[in-house]
Amino acid sequence: MSEQVIGGKSFTAVAINCAAKAGEWIKTKLGNHTSLSLKYSAQDLVTEVDKGAEAMIRNLVMTHFPHHSFLGEEGVQPGPEASDRALQSVRDAEYLWIVDPLDGTTNFVHSFPFFSVSIALAHRGEVIVGVVYDPIRDELFVAEKGKGAYVRGRRMNVSQEEALRDSLIATGFPADQTFALPLNMKGLQALVPQVRNVRSGGSAALHLAYVAAGRLSGFWEIGLNAWDIAAGSLLIEESGGRVTDVKGSPYDLGVRHVAASNGRIHDEFLNALQQAESNS
C-alpha cells in the first residue's frame, strides 16, 4: 500500500496532527476534568476529556477525508460483544480510522502520567499508518507500512533479548473481571518467575509503542480492542518485532488477546502463556 496521499493530503500527516492536537488538549485537562462515569465495570472509566478528544480527532479526520470510516472507543457501547459488533460493521471499509482518544483514562483521572492518544488507519483491514502520542513526555511514535517506525524522528528498533529470563515484559489488568482478568492473572503468575521483571503502566497503546522502541521485550493482555492495539501493532512490525494473538495466529483487527514482542522471545513467550492457560 504505497499510495499514502489523497488530494495532496498525507494520511500520516493528518494522523500526527490529530494526535498532537488531542494530546496537547488532554494535557491541559490533567487534574482538571469535571465528569467521571463508569462504563463496563468499576475499573472502566470515562471522562468528558475522552469524549472531547475523540470528537476533536473525528472532526479533523472527517474534514480531510469525509468518505473514510471511523471507529472510536467512545462511539461504541461498553463491553466485548458491543466492541466486536462495532468492528465487524466497518472492518472491511476501504479506509478505516481506528482511534483511542485517551488510552489510560484511569491514569489520567489519578494524574498518573502514563497515557496516550492512539490513531491508526487501516486500508481494507490492513493497518497502514500507526501513531501513538504521549503528551506528558511529548513523545510521538509513528509508523507507515513499509517505511519503518520512528520516535522523536529517530528510527526505532525492538530490543535484543533472546530469552524470557532476560526480558522485561508488560501487561495490563482487564476491566472484564469474569473472563479476561482471571485469564490474565494466570499468565502473570506463570510469567513472573520466568522473566527479568513485569511492568503494568496502564496504557496498552503506550506499552506496544515501548516494545517497538526497545524499552520492553514484550507485552500481552487479554480482552483488548482494535483501538488499543491497531496503531501499536504497526509500530512493532515496522521496528522488527512480532504481534500475534496469544495462540500465535497473525495479528488482524479482530485480535483481542494480544502478544507482542521483539520477535526473538516470541515462541518462548507464547509457550509460557499457553501453558498457564492449559494448567488452569
Rank of each mutant, 00 (worst) to 15 (best):
N262D: 15
D166K: 03
L168P: 01
K186G: 00
R137H: 13
S261N: 10
L60A: 06
P135T: 12
F114H: 09
L45P: 05
F269N: 15
V46S: 09
G240A: 15
A205P: 07
L36G: 06
D134Q: 10
V5T: 09
H123W: 07
A163L: 05
I6T: 11
G23Q: 12
I16E: 07
L183I: 02
P80E: 14
F179T: 06
R137V: 04
V129T: 07
M185H: 00
M185N: 00
E74N: 06
G72W: 02
D252F: 08
E3G: 13
L235G: 06
K21F: 09
V129W: 01
V131N: 06
S89C: 02
R196Q: 14
Q160I: 06
T106M: 08
N271V: 07
L183N: 00
N59H: 02
G214D: 10
A180F: 00
E277I: 09
N271I: 09
P182E: 00
G254V: 11
L216H: 11
S159C: 10
Y40N: 06
E81K: 14
D228L: 04
E162A: 15
V5D: 11
D44R: 04
L60C: 01
Q274T: 02
G201F: 14
G232H: 05
L30K: 13
G202W: 07
W97Q: 08
R91I: 15
M62H: 06
M56L: 15
R154E: 07
G31L: 14
P113K: 04
T106L: 08
